[in-house]
Design a protein around this nucleic acid. Structure first.
Lengths: 342, 342
DNA sequence: ATTAGCACTCACTTTAATCGAGTGCTAATT
DNA sequence: AATTAGCACTCGATTAAAGTGAGTGCTAAT
């Protein structure tokens, strides 16, 4: 059943007002503040019906009304007009990103920083640690007599390097030899599949350096574990204090504590495999603690493989218009950058 | 003027109690809870004197008393007995660190995590970005036709790598040649001193690759800026909510906002060049916002050059005994680790 | 020098009174 | 039939007043 034009108009006004003020909105205020062409009494009647239909909630009998998650959903899907960012802002966005573009990890982090500044909400950057990371290149770099640096480059652009203390002395030429050998065997291989068997095969072929090779590869397996750890970055976490709904210590605390639960955050950001922009509102989120929040999330891919997510999190009373339009722009710019570089 | 034995005893009891309860302590409670051998009235008189001498403060005429920063200073310097950690805990500390030891950056971060867990306060890890970073080794790694990875290893153990899009195709052998050349010229050099002049010198000597070399070295200069950024890591930030003195939203917020000021944090952690453990209490800190906090900080060095700081921050009513003894242990273990590895 | 006794202080808690934005219903109006 | 004005009622929020109790300083007794 669809809502009448007038009801939509009223609902939109209520949502707009509530997003702005965080106060339950009543019929009188509404009729005074917005030019709806009907009297407060009429609005009252419509509001009563909107409540029956589940779009509004009343905190107690004599209070104004507050939009429900269902209302926000309608608003996001149908009612709001997403603003187009001014060209100047778009360009400063691009410059800002270009400047920071050195590593994929950092790119996401910098984007998150920028995003929280632009939106005044908290933003989250998460690097997806797929289990299908393939080895693109492996390089052994001499550091001093005792130690080498193992540099591991993944096809997703992820770079990981770790110091390894090696028993024997190896001159650079030998190291390069081993590097070449390892690359020959490992390039394109999924990093998880570097099993004992593979190690033994390589060792057999290059018996002279079997000990060194074993050390390196065992080390690699340790690194894998680290690589698979979730890598989450936040920006603007204290922005949450700006919102009256988090203005009591318990709420603020549980919000910040939620952010520390990396597993939970991961699940919040990776839910369904939807294209483009995803808005999840209040109780649509499966976790209790997140049910007073909304998230706007975008997913980034290289060659159709997910490499990370960027998200804005705030109260359900979020300025969806602002956030969505900013994220659409950022999304475009980032995707261009990624396409050009990978 | 030194305090009488009895006054010290009373003062210690007051501090202990206040650290435990966060409530102003009165003479009656004191005489009941601690076995001081004198009556509440006597304690009252002594407390009045301690207040005159600046060790105690009264929030209002009819409240109990609270230790001043001066009292905490005395406590830390003279009164508290630092506990020795049980051997088992020491060993788990060591295991925990060994396991995580891959990179210097991470080592500090992991230590911070561990520290906040052990102490229940907030901990800070800061990697010192000295301007005297010297280049230990530089390695160019082929990634694909268009791009190379520049791996920069500093003598402090810091490793930085960045992707560089290079115009022309270079085969691995050529890259190695350039790598060798660059190392020959740059090893041991302070990274800041890689000036235009140096670049030109190198280019002259190896004219064939002058464009590539220029790109790499200009890129390096960008990286320098990044390297010099302050690198601060926090753990257990929400622990602050555990303390009643931060139980109002304004205090909690300003504490968390303070943590976001990297410059300020940097200055808090690097103040005087004191050996070993440094405790700075309340108003001893130069920044307004930090004046309700105390910090316990240790500094880490390699070859007498500072590489980072580890700190615990909490209310001035901090359990100094606990924090100091934990940090002394951690300090030992970490220094051992660093000595063995650098 | 120490301590018991006592009047006094003052933040904090509890209870009561008041206020006002908002509602639902009814009757009048368009 | 739809809209609106009018009105009694609800209920959280604010303000005011009264009561509570841990603590203090002073005095006089030990």
């Amino acid at each position: 059943m669809t809502l009448s034009e007038r009801k939509l108009k009223i609902l939109r006004a209520i949502i707009t007002d509530y997003i702005e003020t965080a106060e339950p909105v009543g019929s009188r205020t509404l009729s005074r503040k917005y030019d709806l062409g009907v009297s407060a009494a009429t609005i009252r009647n419509e509001m009563a019906e909107l409540e029956e239909e589940g779009y509004l909630k009343q905190l107690h009998t004599s209070s104004g009304r507050v939009p429900s998650d269902k209302a926000y959903r309608l608003y996001v899907d149908k009612l709001m007009e997403s603003r187009i960012l001014a060209k100047i802002q778009r360009e400063s966005l691009r410059d800002n990103l270009m400047q920071k573009f050195h590593e994929v990890q950092n790119l996401l982090e910098h984007s998150a920083e920028y995003l929280s500044q632009l939106t005044d909400y908290t933003s989250i950057a998460m690097a997806e640690k797929t289990k299908e990371n393939r080895i693109k290149h492996l390089q052994l770099v001499p550091v001093d007599e005792e130690r080498i640096l193992v540099v591991l480059i993944m096809d997703t652009g992820l770079v990981k390097n770790t110091l390894l203390r090696i028993g024997e002395k190896l001159d650079p030429r030998e190291l390069q030899k081993i590097t070449n050998l390892l690359n020959h065997h490992l390039q394109g291989m999924e990093i998880r599949k570097v099993s004992q068997l593979v190690i033994e095969n390589i060792q057999r072929e290059f018996y002279e350096y079997r000990r060194t090779i074993e050390m390196i590869l065992l080390h690699l397996q340790e690194v894998v574990k680290e690589v698979e750890q979730i890598d989450v970055f936040f920006s603007g976490t204290t922005n949450i204090f700006n919102f009256p709904e988090f203005n009591d210590i318990v709420k603020a605390r549980s919000f910040l504590a939620m952010l520390e639960e990396k597993e939970l955050i991961k699940n919040l950001l990776t839910l369904p495999d939807q294209e483009g922009l995803r808005v999840s509102i209040g109780r649509e989120n499966l976790y209790d603690i997140a049910q007073e929040c909304s998230l706007v999330t975008t997913t980034y891919k290289i060659d159709n493989r997910t490499i990370g997510h960027l998200s804005v999190i705030g109260p359900t009373r979020m300025d969806y218009t602002k956030v969505v339009s900013i994220m659409i722009q950022l999304n475009k710019q980032l995707n261009d950058l990624l396409r050009d570089n990978y």
